[in-house]
């Protein structure tokens, strides 16, 4: 062996690990919306939830390279589990989150074996199939879920036994924001860990990943399960803050919306999902204002244009503009 250079000078990996100023700015801005935009708490709550859901999808799409058309399966399951708990007297919010996460993780673990094999296409079909299957189940089991009428009578206890969920969504927004922040920090840690690196290795080149000793399948199962748990928590948050669950949580457009959020914000870039959620929600709001019933048309148009222009280019361009305006640089991966 040659004489080793000064050990651990830290040049090689630090770029990803270091917490950047811009990240502090981002989260401070998020916290500021709580105090500064009290009239928008309901909308902001929704953005935080979609952001968390998008973060979850990005863990598998951006970091593990698994395209899914049925990520709503986990979101919906989490929502129904938390909603049902609330309806039947187990209204503690954190308990609901845990149950939503647990059940979605279990479903994620079981269905992960379906996405290990086959091509992109098979994965798309299987994930879509799982989501539709769950949607059909929720529809059929009307005695449990309320079917097409939705799950009503969900009652959520005060957060930590102290903070009531008020009509203006103050508690709800603070709650969602904190949960999203905590889970974001965990995701950031996962992505920058040896585990995260090995998942990216699998995405880039599974053949080589195997050749350096990465157990490809178990890593994919693990990340898929984690992502499912995240989606379950996002769904549980929605059920708890709206105190209502409808079949809509399992619908195809849920999966497509979240895909759009990730794509708008940038794939494989943790803040992408959050930023994409802001854009998506604002777009939806604007479009819904223009043509109340037909806003999906414009969402579709955004997708089409985005792809035709080139996602990378569009996102990079937008990022450039943001960078110039705010004068910040950020990159987590």
């Amino acid at each position: 062996m040659q004489a080793s250079p000064p050990a651990g000078t830290g040049v090689c990996f630090s770029a990803a690990r270091r917490w950047r100023m811009a990240e502090t700015v981002f989260w401070l801005a998020a916290a500021a919306t709580f105090f500064g935009l009290p009239g928008y708490h309901l909308l902001l709550t929704e953005i935080a939830i979609i952001g968390l859901f998008a973060l979850s999808l990005d863990l598998i799409l951006g970091f593990a390279g698994i395209a899914s058309l049925g990520h709503a399966a986990f979101f919906g399951l989490g929502a129904y589990v938390a909603g049902l708990l609330g309806k039947h007297g187990w209204g503690d919010p954190l308990l609901g989150l845990a149950a939503g996460a647990g059940s979605a993780a279990l479903l994620g673990f079981l269905t992960s074996f379906l996405v290990l094999r086959g091509s992109d296409l098979t994965r798309l079909v299987v994930t879509l199939g799982v989501a539709l299957l769950l949607g059909e189940a929720a529809n059929q089991a009307a005695w449990l879920t309320g079917g097409a009428d939705g799950l009503q009578g969900v009652e959520i206890a005060p957060l930590l036994g102290r903070f009531e969920f008020d009509l203006f969504g103050r508690t709800a927004y603070a709650y969602c924001l904190v949960v999203t922040f905590v889970l974001f920090m965990v995701a950031r840690q996962i992505v920058n860990s040896p585990f995260g690196l090995s998942v990216r290795a699998v995405r880039d080149n599974a053949l080589r990943a195997r050749a350096i000793g990465v157990p490809v399948n178990s890593r994919l199962v693990a990340i898929y399960t984690v992502a499912a748990a995240y989606a379950g928590i996002a769904g549980a948050l929605l059920a708890q803050t709206t105190q209502f669950v409808s079949l809509d949580v399992l619908a195809l457009h849920r999966s497509a919306d979240v895909l759009l959020a990730v794509v708008i914000g940038g794939v494989g870039y943790l803040y992408g999902g959050l930023i994409g959620a802001v854009f998506l929600k604002v777009l939806q709001d604007v479009f819904a204002g223009l043509t109340p019933q037909y806003w999906t048309f414009w969402i579709g148009l955004v997708l089409v244009v985005l792809v035709l222009v080139g996602r990378e280019r569009a996102v990079a361009g937008a990022r450039d503009v943001v960078r110039r305006v705010v004068g910040i640089r950020r990159r987590t991966s």
Partner: peptide, 17 residues
């Protein structure tokens, strides 16, 4: 494939609306 999926699902939404 992801681009193709996004594009064509965009078309679906437009057609439906």
């Amino acid at each position: 494939h992801l681009d193709q999926v996004l594009f064509s699902i965009g078309l679906v939404f437009m057609a439906v609306a």
